[in-house]
């Protein structure tokens, strides 16, 4: 069972307190009606399936209830870092720092 750091509670908690929320950084279009059918399809259904670094959404369901984002390595399953919803995708330097 993984330990996950909730960026709002600022504490590591066991995985059972959390629920997975799909891929992160997929913003709902500001004006959906203005999207083409293909753009809307991509927003709805097209998701990444990387080997390695993956940006994901998690919710501290049985804790503070907040949604947050996480970087996880799909090879080792391990969390590299977590950060608050709305913050930008961490850059390479931040990932390296989190890993060391």
């Amino acid at each position: 069972m993984l330990l996950i750091r909730c960026p709002y509670c600022e504490a590591e908690r066991p995985e059972v307190e959390f629920t997975y929320g799909g891929q992160a950084h997929i913003a709902r279009p500001q004006n959906p009606s203005a999207t083409t059918d293909d753009e809307w399809r991509d927003f709805l259904y097209i998701r990444a399936n990387p080997r390695g670094i993956h940006y994901e959404r998690w919710r501290h369901m049985h804790g503070c209830g907040r949604f947050f984002n996480a970087v996880r390595d799909t090879v080792t399953d391990k969390f590299v870092m977590t950060y608050k919803a709305g913050l930008p995708r961490p850059d390479q330097a931040e990932l390296e720092a989190a890993r060391s």
Binding site: T19, G21, R28, R59, M61, G65, F67, A85, G86
Partner: peptide, 13 residues
């Protein structure tokens, strides 16, 4: 409730 929270927290904060 989870869906509502999701939208409220992440799309309509």
């Amino acid at each position: 409730l989870n869906m509502m929270e999701d939208y409220l927290q992440t799309e309509f904060p």
